[in-house]
């Protein structure tokens, strides 16, 4: 293992950033945003809107692209990433302009069901407090539920995977109850739990617990026999075999379970908030729909996409850290 020194020529994997490393494309991307801004500024409106937030958003995009480019002269990987994604950014800017044209500029897509980027950015700015609070509520509910569900899933998975008795008594229960979608429990959860938060936690717990325990048990019982034989001839006790051989061997499986559970939990979270809760993004969407303010619905959906992506990225970082030994084995 050689230590990296500054003199080492950085190695680039052209399979990761395979798009042309061309400055022209990046410049075009920035210019596309300028064009979208100019288009919005000069073309008259058919709908009555407040254009300021959208224009500021476009300006922010232009400035941040420029700043990122300047900063990336110091960070070669960032520069390569920017140039790789230049074509996408370019098309995204054009798509924004097209969307603007189809909605506020021409009215081809009618209100209230198809708001344009202007209405949505406007709503995001006007209603930012509510949206932020809703997003935080959803995130908190998600993490509490997922952590409770994953921890109990890992524990039951270990018990089932390691002890025959637990396997005998619990496996059938998990297999049968696991196929029930968590949202089916909503009426019961609302009736049994004192508030919407605890009933939400319960539903997300249900959604994640089954998946995680199932995968954990699979990982534990799939530990190669040779691992145990090696460890036993090295003087390992039963406890050591479980916690230092079987459980680490199951970690990739555990994460597969958690990641699968995560998408189940997103669905459960939104549905449970829509039905029973008085806070969160799911509730916000439902509430906005009640008032037929579809721009708010879209705004909440966009916020949801961003927050769920961040959540997935956080889980991914934890996973990559714990499974750093797999780097280079897979793919």
């Amino acid at each position: 293992m050689k230590k990296k020194t500054k003199k080492d020529i950085p190695y680039f994997d052209n399979n990761i950033h395979w798009k042309p490393q061309s400055k022209i494309w990046f410049l075009s991307a920035v210019l596309a945003f300028v064009a979208a801004l100019a288009f919005d500024y000069f073309m008259p409106f058919k709908q009555t809107v407040n254009p300021a937030p959208y224009r500021i958003f476009l300006l922010i995009m232009i400035v941040s692209l420029a700043v990122l480019y300047a900063v990336s002269s110091k960070f070669i990987t960032l520069r390569r990433k920017l140039l790789h994604n230049a074509q996408f950014i370019f098309v995204a800017a054009l798509a924004l302009a097209l969307w603007d044209f189809l909605t506020a500029k021409s009215g081809i897509f009618p209100l209230p069901f198809f708001p344009g980027p202007l209405q949505i950015t406007d709503v995001m700015v006007k209603d930012y407090k509510m949206l932020l609070i809703s997003a935080l509520f959803s995130t908190r509910l998600f993490f509490v539920g997922l952590i409770v569900g994953s921890v109990s899933g890992i524990l039951t998975g270990i018990l089932i995977g390691w002890f025959r008795q637990w396997d005998y008594w619990l496996s059938p229960v998990i297999k049968v109850s696991g196929v029930i979608p968590a949202v089916a429990w909503i009426p019961i959860a609302i009736a049994v739990f004192p508030n919407s938060f605890s009933s939400g936690v319960f539903l997300i717990f249900i959604a994640s617990w089954f998946m995680v325990s199932f995968m954990t048990a699979g990982g534990i019982s799939a530990t190669p026999k040779s691992y145990f034989e090696v460890a036993r001839t090295l003087g390992a006790s039963e406890k050591y075999l479980l916690f230092h051989i079987a459980v680490p061997n199951a970690v990739p499986n555990i994460f597969m379970g958690i990641l699968t559970a995560t998408s189940l939990c997103f669905a459960t979270l939104v549905v449970s908030e829509m039905i029973g809760a008085k806070a969160g993004l799911g509730w916000y969407i439902n509430w906005a729909k009640g008032w037929s303010v579809y721009s708010k619905v879209y705004a909440a959906i966009i916020i949801m996409a961003v927050s769920f992506s961040i959540i997935l990225a956080v889980i991914g970082v934890v996973k990559n850290y714990l499974l750093r030994w797999q780097k280079g084995i897979l793919k």
């Binding site: 190669p224 040779s226 034989e229 090696v230 003087g235 390992a236 006790s237 051989i245 680490p248 797999q326």
Partner: peptide, 24 residues
């Protein structure tokens, strides 16, 4: 016991693999 295959534990580094006996 040395098996035909080395059977090192893939999640442990070389030194951690060597340390298993001592730790166990």
């Amino acid at each position: 016991y040395i098996f035909q295959q080395p059977t090192l534990f893939p999640w442990k580094t070389v030194e951690d693999n060597v340390a298993i006996g001592l730790k166990a």
